[in-house]
């Protein structure tokens, strides 16, 4: 079993023993600089990186679509699973929390309340967990072709967004069936989804970098996302639960600051007329979107030249 440091040290020592001189790096490096050669692996500046990523937009889109097409290609029902999966999820949660545990009193329209929560949360959850594998699961691609590595987590999030587009149609139809009216507020639906997508991209960029070196992340992530699910008020109203438990109102405020909870609340505000979220929930949505995207992109870019070492 060869350790890296010792192996390099061995090689150096071995080289010297052979009588091979340990040459300084200067001559070749000087030769390279005189002819204007660049290091093969050099991280581009942040603006250049953004530009490269923009040039690869067709790849990102095609890659996302291709993955969506190939995902269900082996099953008999095919693309129908894009609709069935969220529906089945919502059904299970309704059985569990609506009927058995009795959270139905948390909202006047519990079915719409629950469905919105499940669909919106699963968008973030799936983006984050697929983003965590986007680098470690694509090593062969990274070792074969040149492209800004951020294209991979980005494509995975776009793929989930495409799936969400299908789910949203299902969600809107179901919400209408529960008796909610179509209002002008529906014009805000794309805005919420845009903000949430920005957050998801940022979060999956962060997790992609972590997951590229810490393989144990993939084992741990399901537990983290499940805890997140339970804390985000997907199948219960956070303020009602906190009140029941005798907790102070600021505790509910803090829980609503959680990005997933914020996006769910914003969407419920739009879709369910009787639902009244905190006034500032849109502010939390905007903050998380901008913060996550900027920090995530910067954090991912910092390690750009190291992806692919495995």
């Amino acid at each position: 079993m060869s350790q890296p440091e010792s192996a390099v040290a061995d090689a150096r020592a071995g080289g010297r023993k052979d009588g091979t001189p340990s040459r300084g790096k200067e001559p070749l490096a000087e030769l390279a600089s005189r002819y204007g050669l660049r290091r093969a692996i050099a991280r581009p500046s942040l603006p250049a990186y953004v530009r490269q990523l923009w040039e690869r937009r067709h790849f990102v889109l095609t890659y996302a679509t291709s993955r969506n097409v190939s995902r269900y290609s082996s099953s008999m029902l095919g693309q129908l699973w894009q609709v069935l999966t969220p529906l089945l999820n919502a059904g299970v949660y309704y059985l569990m929390f609506g009927l058995i545990l009795g959270a139905r009193n948390d909202s006047d329209n519990y079915v719409a309340f629950l469905l919105t929560g499940v669909f919106i949360f699963s968008f973030t959850q799936r983006s984050v967990s697929s983003g965590a594998k986007s680098i470690s699961g694509n090593l062969s691609l990274i070792r074969a072709l040149h492209f800004p590595r951020a294209a991979l987590p980005l494509a995975y999030t776009i793929q989930e967004l495409q799936q969400l587009a299908v789910s949203m149609v299902v969600l809107l139809v179901l919400v209408l069936l529960t008796g909610e009216p179509i209002t002008l507020l529906w014009l805000f639906i794309p805005v919420v989804l845009l903000l949430q997508t920005m957050f998801n991209i940022g979060a999956s960029l962060v997790l992609a970098r972590i997951g590229s070196t810490a393989r144990d992340m993939n084992q741990l992530l399901p537990f983290i996302t499940r805890t997140w699910l339970y804390a985000s008020g997907v199948f219960y109203a956070i303020d009602v639960k906190v009140e029941h438990a005798g907790g102070p109102p600021w505790l509910a405020d803090i829980l609503y600051l959680n990005p997933a909870a914020s996006y769910i609340e914003f969407m419920r505000d739009i879709l369910i007329s009787s639902h009244t979220p905190r006034d500032w929930v849109w502010g939390s949505c905007v903050f998380w979107a901008v913060f996550a995207l900027l920090v995530g992109f910067w954090y991912f870019w910092r390690a750009e030249e190291r992806y692919g070492r495995g």
Partner: peptide
């Protein structure tokens, strides 16, 4: 495509 552990590659 593979980061060097030590040393470097310069290209045109």
């Amino acid at each position: 495509l593979l980061p060097a552990h030590q040393g470097s590659v310069y290209t045109d």
